[in-house]
Computed example of a mutant assay.
Amino acid sequence: MPQILTEANLRSLIDLLVKESKLVVGPKQAGSLVLYEPLATGSDLKLGALPRRSSKELFFPICENILTFKKEEGVTKVQDVDRSAFPETVLIGALPCDASSPAILDAVFSWDYHDDFYLERRRKSTIVGIACTKGDDACFCTAVGYSPYGQEGSDLFLTPLTDGNFAVDVVTEKGQKLVDAHPSLFTEGKGAAPVSFQGPQGEKLDLAKIKEWLDTHFEDPLWQKIADICVGCGACAFICPACHCFDINDEGSADNGARRKHWDACGFAKFTNHASGHNPRDIQNKRYRNRIMHKFKYYSDKFDKTLCTGCGRCVRTCPVGIDIAEILDTINKG
């Protein structure tokens, strides 16, 4: 029998999880923006809006210490970060384009090297996804194989119903554990009809054809055409749910400091700068080409996954109006 969760009980679930000392994160109004932020109470949850930034920073922070060091009496002592202290976390209200991204990133963070920082956060996290009911001209999830109702990456999935309640789908054992821990909040019943998605839905792109085109158009004039516009600000990478480039730096002094992981972006001029001074991607057309190649060829070749969920954030954020969906459509028709 299907299960139903009322909006009041959804907010009560958040209250209970907070009382259980869980870190509860979800869409929250923050001034003029909606962001994924810690929720203190159920009333903080903002439903029906795509947060400005993606939820990836919950698992892959913008900046984090990976060790600290301190010199005492001439001896340098190195201290690892206590990853066991990472909190049990519940991400609530992640739309499909965000809920699906950790499952994409799992591949690279557990490939030839296991990133214990990322993987420990993932292990301790439960994702409650929610179907998307409205989109704008920047959205293109359906074009890259996703859906406003897609359950990929969610442990528990909520579908808004026309009566204001939510249909509940248990997707994983983590989702079942969450339901079992709070049985009084979930009721059995079919419920009303799902809320229909309002907004444009792009025609599905032929991703195999795009990858084939990329294989044979490494020096295509398209890259220079885009580079003439792109300013290399990196906003598209930082706001993307799936981009994951980072750098590691030692900060502080010889006596006291930390080794830190920072987000980086392949669009930055010095991203591939060698210690010798040589830079294999020294001009912008090479850098933007790499961005598209990485998302739609290299990552697919390695992990059989597309490094894009079609959320449209890069389109909304680009200061010069570069539209990756239009670029993909151009390639798809080429």
Rank of each mutant, 00 (worst) to 15 (best):
A30N: 13
K19A: 13
K28V: 02
G74Y: 09
C63R: 15
Y36Q: 01
E73P: 02
V34L: 02
E73Q: 14
L58F: 00
V34T: 05
S54D: 04
L16V: 00
C63F: 10
L33N: 10
F60Q: 01
E72M: 11
C63V: 14
L39T: 06
G74I: 07
L23E: 03
Y36I: 05
L45M: 07
V24L: 11
Q29A: 06
Y36S: 09
K19E: 13
I66Y: 10
V18G: 09
L50P: 02
P27W: 01
L35D: 06
R53L: 11
I66E: 05
T41V: 14
S32D: 13
A49L: 14
R53G: 03
V24H: 01
L50V: 08
S54T: 11
L16E: 04
P51F: 04
G74E: 07
R53A: 08
G48N: 01
L23S: 02
S43E: 14
F69Y: 15
K46Q: 09
Q29L: 06
G42N: 12
L67R: 15
A40W: 06
P61S: 08
S32H: 08
R52P: 10
E20C: 00
S32C: 07
V24P: 03
S43Y: 05
F69V: 06
D44E: 04
F69P: 01
Y36D: 03
D15G: 03
T41G: 03
E73A: 14
F60H: 09
F60A: 03
L33V: 00
C63D: 14
E20L: 06
K28P: 00
L23F: 08
L39P: 09
G26W: 06
K22P: 02
P38A: 12
K56A: 01
L16G: 08
L50S: 00
P38G: 05
F59E: 01
S54E: 10
L45F: 07
T41L: 00
S43I: 08
L35F: 06
E72H: 07
K19H: 10
L58Q: 10
N65E: 15
G26K: 05
E72R: 15
G31D: 02
N65F: 13
R52G: 04
G26D: 05
K22N: 11
N65I: 11
L67K: 15
S32I: 06
L33T: 11
L17T: 04
V25S: 03
L17D: 11
R52C: 07
E37A: 09
G42Y: 10
S54P: 07
N65V: 11
E73L: 14
E73S: 13
K28C: 02
V24Y: 02
K19D: 11
R53Q: 13
Q29K: 13
K56L: 04
V24N: 04
L23N: 08
G42A: 09
L39Y: 07
Q29M: 04
G48Y: 09
S43Q: 14
G48L: 04
L47I: 12
A30W: 02
F60W: 09
C63W: 12
S32G: 05
D44L: 04
E64G: 00
I14R: 11
F69Q: 12
L23Q: 07
G48P: 11
L35I: 03
L17G: 09
L13C: 05
P61M: 01
L17E: 09
L17Q: 10
Q29F: 01
V24A: 00
S43K: 15
T41H: 11
